[in-house]
Write a protein that binds this DNA or RNA. Structure first.
Length: 280
DNA sequence: CATTACCTGCAA
DNA sequence: TTGCAGGTAATG
């Protein structure tokens, strides 16, 4: 489900609704595994108050008054839902947090690729070092982007999905950002020019902002904390558009597989670096 | 560095 | 029945 816009929407929602609330009790469904262990999880959280909610890359952090953190990764199918007591149970609910005012935070996750984990401040610092800057980081200039992309020599599309290089993009926004920047997804990072990096940086920012403005992309699973889907799926440029016309030139969008992930591009608008040179 | 593995559900 | 799904960790 979630890439940066979707995770940001959930984070903002939680910040609005659960800060200041105290966790009275927790229900863990069946044998679902929380981290680092059920015992630590319950001991740390029951009676704790939510002091703040933040986001690091695609990880949601609920800061506790104890200084520790309740963290969530939504991975593909994770959802965090804020519900009144008595609201019907979520499908695939894994953990339920019941607050002192009777409202509830429910973590559901069909495929169970996500997690709910308690960490301390040291582990948070550790977590932060695992991620590269998001496209909105104030120090991320086109020059800097070019430099960090050079850390890998692979097709650009694959590298955009590596969170330790650039954080926040997933398969949807990576495809559409490359389309917007007119860069072919198979372009090797070593062939990316400063001009490409400029276009790519602004395209990533633009596409992520647009996703956020549309309340996120809902293909199947994403909903905000109230259960409402986003609408950015109606604005996809090339993602999921195999054989459909490119919004820019009407050429049929092609699909290929790159690093094991479906990759969409317009063969007319998105040329690889070498092909661009032959135009002159 | 590339591929597989983790899970469940659904559409082809 | 197969392959694919918004993500990432663990393998070779």
């Amino acid at each position: 489900m979630p890439e940066l816009p979707e995770v940001e929407i959930v984070t903002r929602g939680l910040k609005k609704e659960i800060v200041g609330k105290k966790i009275n009790s927790i229900e863990i469904s069946g044998t679902y595994k929380v981290h680092p262990s059920k015992e630590v999880f319950l001991k740390t959280l029951i009676g704790a108050k939510i002091a703040d909610v933040e986001r690091v890359a695609k990880v949601i952090l609920c800061k506790l008054d104890s200084g520790k953190f309740l963290t969530f990764h939504l991975a593909m199918t994770g959802r965090l839902l804020y519900r009144k007591s008595g609201h019907k149970e979520e499908l695939y609910q894994r953990v339920k947090f019941i607050f002192d005012d009777g409202t509830e935070l429910r973590f559901s996750d069909l495929r169970m690729f996500g997690y709910a984990k308690v960490i301390d401040e040291n582990e948070l610092e550790n977590l932060k070092t695992k991620y590269g800057p998001t496209p909105f980081h104030k120090d991320l200039t086109p020059e800097k982007l070019l430099e960090i992309l050079g850390q890998r020599k692979s097709p650009i599309k694959k590298v955009l999905l590596e969170q330790d290089v650039i954080a926040g993009l997933g398969n949807i926004y990576a495809n559409d950002a490359l389309w917007m920047a007119k860069i072919h997804p198979e372009t090797l990072t070593t062939k990316i020019t400063l001009d490409d990096a400029k276009n790519l940086l602004s395209s990533m920012q633009e596409i992520l902002k647009e996703g956020l403005l549309h309340g996120g992309s809902t293909i199947k699973d994403f909903v905000d904390i109230y259960g409402n889907p986003g609408s950015h799926q109606h604005h996809f440029r090339v993602y999921g558009k195999e054989n459909k016309p490119c919004p820019n030139c009407k050429t049929e969008v092609k699909m290929t597989t790159l690093g094991g992930r479906s990759t969409f591009y317009c063969p007319n608008c998105q040329k690889v670096a070498d092909e661009k040179l032959t135009l002159f």
